[in-house]
Simulated assay, not measured.
Amino acid sequence: MTAKNPKEEMNQDLKANSVPAPSSKRGRPKKKRERKIFTAQEKTEAVLSIWTESSSQSEICRNLGVNANSLQRWQDQAMEAILKAMEPARKEAKQNTLSPRLEKLLSRHIPHVSDQEMEP
């Protein structure tokens, strides 16, 4: 069988030398799974379902179509966010928050202010 034109001949050569598409055990081509992107709301609901023991981890994985590693990562991220949110908003203020210049000005007008701040 010879091709009629060079393009067809080249296409036949490519087809003959190409790697076959991945197939399942039955010889059918595998369908490429599209990756689902979960919203923060969906991830939160999944994590809370596990933490409140309303669903098992395997049930959540099966229902959402995710693997256990992904679900564990969501739980780790949720715990980190909770711990970060619970940290105090401000660090403890330094005892001497006033600049030396401001302390000097205040000491002229209110002598007891700089004395109290200087004491540990």
Rank of each mutant, 00 (worst) to 15 (best):
M1V: 07
A3Y: 07
A3T: 12
K7R: 14
N11S: 12
N11P: 05
Q12M: 10
Q12D: 07
A16W: 07
N17A: 09
P22K: 00
S23L: 11
S24K: 14
R26L: 07
R26E: 04
G27T: 03
G27Q: 06
R28F: 13
P29G: 09
K30C: 13
K31H: 13
R35N: 08
R35W: 06
K36V: 15
F38A: 00
T39V: 07
A40L: 15
Q41S: 12
T44Y: 05
T44S: 08
E45W: 04
E45L: 12
I50N: 10
I50F: 08
W51Y: 02
W51L: 11
W51T: 10
T52G: 05
T52M: 05
E53F: 05
S54N: 05
S55N: 14
E59W: 01
E59N: 01
I60P: 02
C61T: 00
R62I: 10
R62G: 03
R62A: 07
L64P: 04
V66K: 00
N67Q: 03
A68K: 02
A68F: 00
N69I: 03
L71A: 01
R73A: 13
W74E: 03
D76C: 09
Q77D: 15
M79Y: 11
M79I: 15
A81G: 08
I82Q: 05
K84T: 14
K84M: 14
K84N: 13
K84A: 12
A85M: 06
M86T: 07
M86F: 11
P88D: 04
A89Y: 11
R90I: 01
K91Q: 08
K91E: 04
A93L: 08
A93N: 06
T97F: 15
T97W: 10
S99Q: 09
R101H: 08
L102F: 01
L106Q: 03
L106E: 04
S107L: 02
R108S: 11
H109S: 14
I110N: 13
H112F: 11
S114T: 10
Q116T: 11
E117T: 01
M118H: 12
M118E: 14
P120A: 03
P120W: 09
P120V: 08
